[in-house]
Design a protein around this nucleic acid. Sequence first.
DNA 1: ATAACCAGCCTGTCTATACAATTAAATCCG
DNA 2: CGGATTTAATTGTATAGACAGGCTGGTTAT
Lengths: 251, 251
Amino acid sequence: MSDVTTSNLINLFDDLPDAPLPIYAKLKQAITMKISSGEWQTNQRVPSEAEVVKALGVSRMTVNRALRELTAEGYLVRHQGLGTFVAEKKAHSALFEVHNIAEEVAARGHKHRSELLVLESAKATMEEAMTLGVRTNHGIFRSVVLHFENDLPIQIEERIVNATLAPDYDKQDFAKYTPYEYLMSVAPMTEGEHLVEAVLPNDIECERLQVQTSEPCLQIKRRTWAGDDIVTAARLLHPGSRFQLFGHFGR
Amino acid sequence: MSDVTTSNLINLFDDLPDAPLPIYAKLKQAITMKISSGEWQTNQRVPSEAEVVKALGVSRMTVNRALRELTAEGYLVRHQGLGTFVAEKKAHSALFEVHNIAEEVAARGHKHRSELLVLESAKATMEEAMTLGVRTNHGIFRSVVLHFENDLPIQIEERIVNATLAPDYDKQDFAKYTPYEYLMSVAPMTEGEHLVEAVLPNDIECERLQVQTSEPCLQIKRRTWAGDDIVTAARLLHPGSRFQLFGHFGR
DNA sequence: ATAACCAGCCTGTCTATACAATTAAATCCG
DNA sequence: CGGATTTAATTGTATAGACAGGCTGGTTAT
């Protein structure tokens, strides 16, 4: 882990908009800029509190607050006795939550229905096993459900399910309840991850969603945990012309 | 907003495992327990720093740290001159976290640079005024910035800014700092909303992003509040082949 | 040579004090 | 009565000082 020369300290406050910000905030801003500009690389050591105090003539508690908050925000990592370092990439940055499609449609006051296209019991391929965190040939279920909003296709839901954690998945009536609703009832989903992309649909997907080949679609890949186990992984495909993801943060 | 009796203070430290925790951490734990148990209701006023100091005999800075961190974590809301209150429940509202494209690129260990394409002062059209929640002809700034990751276009950032809230927006050097970084420094962004869609780029956008006309793009529309005012609205366009949104929920 | 020790650096926490900024209520005054 | 002003309460920030605890590297003792 390389060091940071003192020269980097001298201009920490340079070129900052002289907005009426508290000192600790200016310091935070100056440091995040050093990081995002690439001047301070991952795992590189950043100046110690004492060094900043000496260079900038501010109180150690002020420096401490800036570094502590940046650590809480994931920019820095601190080790007692060693120093402060630029953290590894912020993995979980943009976070959002997606609702159950049936709920969403209902919330808009529209009619929801769904068609079950595939429901089978199978053994996990290597790729599926990787996705679910199980061994190859572990028992899984595969399902494909097509969701409609006011009789227009709104989502293709491709899903694989860990059979150990939801053994009765293939006995459900998915015309009545969505797979999501059933899985929520059998396994308390405590954690999840999403991957959102814009993609072009293939021919089968075009037909199912009733869109042109050239129409961009919003694809959401989602994995859901119950405790340490992955319950299910889904790929949700929405026609771009009829679907938006809405999110809200703060208060 | 009702009050909290002093009796609630006396036993703040009771029933806590006497784990070797710092005082501020015990205080945080005691307060979150009061909230999650329902003893302290939403919008209810919680003891002031001075009251806790008097009741528990700890330093005000220690109490301040506990309350400040709980505020950052969304448990409390503080108003200078008024007091500290239990925050609204963090509902199942889909939440995103804002971040900065420059940071993201840097986090991946890649080089970020940006080109300022447009920066102008103007009067809000009716549509822009609606978006920003101001009157037509209210002063705004418009900017278009093209962001690169390792010299490949990764984002077109179209933005309008409320000139009243960020009067020096047009005097910034957006080759050095992103608009996001400047706006964060002048206005504490407390709230925001996102709209994510899959769209096809028009000809100008294709050229700027160096993609084919048929390539789907991920479009994020974002509005950001500081208190009750909308500071800025942005439209972010990413090439679908080079960009994914990643999210994580739960714990 | 090896082990034990220690000095120095660094972060983590706590305290006491001071002043600024904001808000609501109380007070004053015409 | 009503408007302007003052006051008290509360949070926000900054500072100086103190001590604890972890880590590293050099020194000393065996």
